[in-house]
């Protein structure tokens, strides 16, 4: 999904890991937040928002990443600006 790719790449750049690792971290956070059975193509804006604010934040804190709040804010801005990708790029 393009929105996961976009958020994952932004996260990877921010914490200086590879892009696949950044995307993987987003997917893990989605699994933490919504469980393993929710298909990625059924995620809505609110699912991504909750994932970033809750599960991803916890994952970043666990990894002892500094400036977690700044990263979360950046991802929320990215998500809000590119929210249409969920629909336009998801059908």
């Amino acid at each position: 999904m393009e929105i996961i790719k976009l958020l994952g790449n932004a996260l990877a750049e921010k914490i200086s890991v590879s892009s696949p690792a950044g995307r993987g971290l987003i997917k893990l956070a989605i699994k933490d937040e919504l469980g393993p059975f929710k298909p990625l193509n059924q995620l809505e804006f609110i699912d991504f928002k909750n994932t970033i604010v809750n599960s991803l934040k916890k994952r970043l804190e666990k990894l002892e990443i500094s400036s977690t709040s700044e990263i979360i804010d950046l991802l929320l801005v990215k998500l809000t600006k590119n929210q249409s990708l969920i629909t336009i790029g998801g059908v």
Partner: peptide, 20 residues
Amino acid sequence: PKEDIVFSEEDLMTLIRKQL
């Protein structure tokens, strides 16, 4: 297209910790 490599959770977290 960039195909994502499928990692197990453990492998992915190990990779991220290593890169960090």
